Amino acid sequence: MNFSTLTLLSIFLTTAELTTASADPKSPTKLFQKSPYHRELFKGDSHQHHAHQRRDGSCSFPSDAGIVKLPSNNGWAMDNKCEDGKWCQYACPPGQLMAQWNPEVTTYSYPGSQDGGVYCNEGELELKVKDHDGYCYDGTGTAKVNNKASSNVAFCQTVLPGNEAMLIPTNIDGGSTETLAVPGTDYWAKTAAHYYVNPPGVSAEEGCVWGSTSNPYGNWSPYVAGFNQDDSGSTFGKIGWNPIYFEDSSPFKDKNPSFGLRLKCEDEGSCNGDECEINPKKVGLNKCSAQNLKSDGAAWCSITATGNSKVIVEVFDV
């Protein structure tokens, strides 16, 4: 394992806490280790999972805040209604990050990890993070998707702080490129951005939701990806197989996806790491080229782009 891989793994384990949901919503797992916070999330009365007592009333989704209105739950990126005493999460446009959360929560720990978004107070939405102006702000801009597949592909970012469901959409048309939201160390608890990668041809409306074994979409997507940047300007990128794709209950575990991923640096002279590619037609199921590291039984690989240079994710048909 080279230096860049060790650095990436260290950051993902200590600050990024990249997660992947399991088949059973009562036992989600981290990509690298089990999470007691996630297991507790789905136990007992849902009222106890919020830092503030629920009161009557609700807050409406803002129409002029520059945020993305999702097709379900009145536009919010959360399971429940945006009601008084709750933190209400939302989706930002591609390349941008949620700028609001509970400023009193500074570490990745339950239940504070749920307190993302704006605070609903007697029908009024309150923006608590004063360092950011508004609802969203630009990420580092150092990760892009180059979709070489014949159809669109939906990258679905998990909501953190929040319930960590894959609800935040970035759709990339075939033959197009799009910037992904990459957090620096100023983002909440210095966490990374985590994405589920749906097969080409699956819309964001279909893929950026909690899925089922009917299709390899959403949390059942074959691949995941993660990105963050440190204070030196190094962007860490990872692509990997989704661990639940190979669970015993998965009907997809013996099926090759129809597409692959390749992770590379825009500037080869600023790149640390070996070849990083997932091509099931060439190397088979649950394997990556060169590195072929594994966590929770799923293979992954990584690279690092230094000096504020960009990481590129190529999507291609196989």
Rank of each mutant, 00 (worst) to 15 (best):
Y108C: 03
V224I: 11
L9E: 10
G116N: 03
V311Q: 14
Y195G: 05
S250I: 01
D56N: 11
K26E: 04
E83A: 15
G175E: 10
P28V: 01
A21C: 00
I244D: 04
E268F: 06
Q291I: 04
K26G: 12
L293Q: 15
R54S: 05
F12H: 09
G233L: 06
H49V: 01
D131A: 13
I11C: 06
G226A: 15
K294P: 00
L160A: 12
L97K: 13
L31C: 12
E206K: 14
S295T: 11
T170H: 05
Y110T: 06
K238I: 13
S309V: 05
H38W: 09
F42V: 01
C136I: 02
Y196N: 13
Y90P: 12
T20K: 02
N272G: 02
A65D: 01
S249H: 01
N147R: 14
E266K: 10
C301P: 05
N215W: 11
E17T: 08
P103C: 11
G85K: 03
D248A: 09
W76F: 14
T213W: 07
P222Q: 09
Q33E: 10
G211L: 07
Q100H: 10
T213G: 01
K34D: 13
N279T: 09
V68W: 14
L6F: 06
P183Y: 13
Q96C: 00
N163I: 04
G307C: 09
L31P: 08
A143P: 08
Y90T: 08
P183C: 00
G139R: 06
Y195Q: 03
L125P: 09
F32V: 00
A299S: 15
